[in-house]
Amino acid sequence: MDLREKPRKVQKCLELSLRFRLISVVLMVVLTVMFLATSWQALVTLPLGASEALGMWLAEAEGAETAWASAQYLGVSAIAMVVLFFAFGGMRSGIGGIVALLLFMGSLLFLGGAEGMAQIFFAVFAVLALILLFAAKWSVACVLFPFALAWLLLTGFVGWFPLWQGDSWLVWAVLSAAGFSSVVAFALAAGKELGEGAPRAGAMVKAGKKMTLPVLISSLLALAALTFDMGQTGAKQIAGAAILWVAYAVWFFVVAFGTMSFAPWDKLRAGSRRVQMKDKKKK
């Protein structure tokens, strides 16, 4: 197989996702309503469980060495994700991914295990994200509100998913953290392309291509870490983890990607396209 064909296939898939983005958004709304109709408690129980567990983990950790030993598999997957952001997305995406990951963990600590805080926090985040979507000329502002909408589907699916026998809140926390970091890294990569004068669709496809391996590999490592760390090594559990991985990939590259394409990206585009000329080495 010619490895040079892979980027073309990825690009074609991303272009198809943009072409059928309206269908993906409609399906997102329908599936979100279906999942939340049967497991709407997941909007509260999953963030609450993750918040309580994170607080207890930090309280029980006697030092950095103890904390690392108790979560080394997830730590390795998080480090790998950030390294991939730097390698494929560049400096902006790498730093943005780190900041997003820290902000997500900070938001869980902010909840403090309070039952009424989850709904309030999400409502404030959604309203603020909607305001920034139209008021701020910043690439990350273009993805916050679309992420909030797509996150509802991710939460509903994890809360409903029947094949995972472990702690659903941990799966939700890991996938949500990876999703938020990946979306921010994607936004910064797309913003860079737009700043160089690329059209909106072209910038999104280029950024999507840069995020393909980071998203797929980091989510695979994270779910593998959860599977082995929680002792979910039976055939049913491994199959469930594989389905979750495929579902997460579809969620990011079809649902989230399609939803983000409706954001007003054109306001970030430079007036004229920059062309970088590279000198050829003389033999």
Rank of each mutant, 00 (worst) to 15 (best):
A135Y: 12
L132G: 14
L132V: 09
W151Q: 07
V143K: 01
L152M: 09
K137L: 12
L132R: 13
A173D: 09
A129L: 03
V127I: 15
F145P: 00
S176V: 07
P162F: 09
S176Q: 13
L132F: 14
L154C: 03
A136N: 11
W160K: 04
F147C: 07
I120W: 10
V174A: 13
L163Q: 12
A150W: 01
F157S: 04
L175T: 08
L133E: 04
P162E: 05
S139D: 05
G156K: 08
V174S: 10
W169V: 01
W160Y: 15
V158W: 10
T155Q: 14
W138V: 07
L149G: 00
C142F: 02
A118R: 11
L149F: 02
D167L: 15
L163Y: 14
G166Q: 10
V158K: 05
Q165V: 09
L163I: 13
A150V: 02
A141F: 01
A173C: 11
L170P: 00
W172F: 15
L130Q: 08
A123W: 05
P146V: 01
A123G: 03
W164R: 01
V158T: 06
L130K: 11
L152G: 01
L163P: 10
F147S: 06
M117I: 11
W151Y: 05
S139E: 09
A123P: 01
S176D: 05
F161Y: 15
I120S: 07
V174E: 15
G166C: 08
S139V: 04
W169M: 08
L130R: 06
L153F: 13
V127C: 06
V171E: 05
A173Q: 12
V171C: 12
Q165D: 13
F134W: 15
L175K: 04
M117Q: 10
A123C: 04
A141N: 05
A141I: 01
L130C: 09
V127Q: 05
S168N: 15
F147L: 10
L149A: 06
Q165Y: 14
A118K: 11
A148E: 01
T155W: 02
A141L: 00
D167A: 14
A129E: 00
W151P: 00
V124W: 11
V171L: 14
I131A: 11
G156V: 08
P146A: 08
V127S: 08
W172R: 06
L170C: 14
D167K: 13
P146G: 06
W169C: 03
P162T: 07
W138F: 11
A135E: 14
K137E: 14
V124P: 11
F134Q: 01
F121Y: 09
A129F: 02
F134P: 04
L175A: 09
C142T: 07
P162W: 09
V174I: 14
A150D: 01
L133Y: 11
L175R: 05
A123E: 07
L154H: 04
A136F: 07
I120D: 09
F134V: 13
F161E: 06
L128W: 06
V171Y: 13
W160F: 13
Q119A: 12
F147Q: 04
A118I: 06
L128F: 10
V127P: 05
L154T: 05
Q119E: 13
G156N: 06
F121V: 07
A141W: 02
A148T: 00
T155R: 04
W164D: 02
W164N: 02
L153P: 00
L149H: 01
V158C: 03
F122E: 12
G166A: 15
